[in-house]
Amino acid sequence: MIDLRGRRAVVTGGSRGIGAAVVRALAACGADVLVGYRARGEDADAVAADARSVGVRAESCSADLSTRDGVRGLFARAREALGGVDILVANAGVWPSEDVPVERLDDERWLRTMRENVDSMFYCAREAARVMGDGGRIVMISSTAGQRGEAFHADYAASKGAMISFVKSLAVELGPRGITVNSVAPGWVDTEMTADAMASGGRERIAATIPVGRVASPDDIAFPVVCLCAPQARHVTGEILNVNGGSVLCG
């Protein structure tokens, strides 16, 4: 039912994990895709090749999304390679894995988390709003942490909480143009980013806290992202779609 042929998407953080799964899912629905990445060029190229294998246009582009110029360069490449932008999936971000209480949370970690998760979100959304035509789609990857907090990761939770408020604000601004703005909020996902937490029995302990009893795969997150990009989702905007096995409902 989801036909995205003729639609042009930018996916940030597309070289691995959730971003790579989103690229492949968008391509499977017919969208052309620009795979944004920071440093993992070979991985990004491989993801783009996977997308091209199903008959769509796909390229990769390195960019530092924490800077205005980096984001401008990414979108310029999208216009050059794809002819424009209809969809933005803002997936790039960091999750500092070390547990740190607020009294020991140093300026460097706080500022890095805000640069990578908040500044990049703002720059990407602003550029998308400038270049995207009417009827576009913006989907941002937030987190359960942005809704209920996360002890010892207050920087990360604050950054994702900011994203949630930003999504709701932007949805109202862009609604008259038919551009929808939504967020998908995963809980634990089996990716390279969470590998340390999953090790040494961590996966089993985490799964036991999730009502459905399992940790999500990247494909579990990609599916609702693509649904929000579909033409049929034109009346869904400003929403935070929880894709976390019910864990956000638990204490």
Results as ranks from 00 to 15, higher is better:
85 V>F: 04
168 K>M: 10
5 R>C: 07
113 T>R: 12
225 V>F: 10
125 A>K: 02
199 A>I: 02
90 A>E: 04
193 M>R: 10
172 V>M: 12
92 A>H: 02
211 P>E: 05
209 T>Y: 08
175 G>Q: 11
67 T>L: 13
150 E>G: 01
44 A>S: 07
242 N>I: 03
52 R>C: 11
5 R>W: 00
73 G>M: 06
137 R>N: 05
47 V>G: 01
188 W>Y: 13
106 D>Y: 12
146 G>Q: 07
5 R>F: 01
143 S>A: 10
115 R>C: 02
36 G>Q: 01
116 E>Y: 12
82 L>H: 10
211 P>K: 15
76 A>H: 14
67 T>C: 02
73 G>H: 10
174 L>Q: 07
88 L>C: 04
211 P>Q: 10
224 P>F: 07
29 C>H: 11
36 G>H: 03
14 G>P: 03
155 D>G: 06
94 V>M: 11
208 A>D: 10
243 V>F: 05
227 C>L: 14
34 L>M: 09
101 P>G: 08
175 G>I: 02
58 A>G: 11
127 E>R: 15
186 P>R: 08
33 V>D: 00
174 L>V: 07
72 R>E: 03
193 M>E: 12
188 W>S: 13
114 M>P: 01
176 P>H: 06
32 D>A: 15
113 T>Y: 08
66 S>M: 09
237 T>I: 06
161 G>R: 09
19 G>I: 09
98 E>L: 15
195 A>E: 09
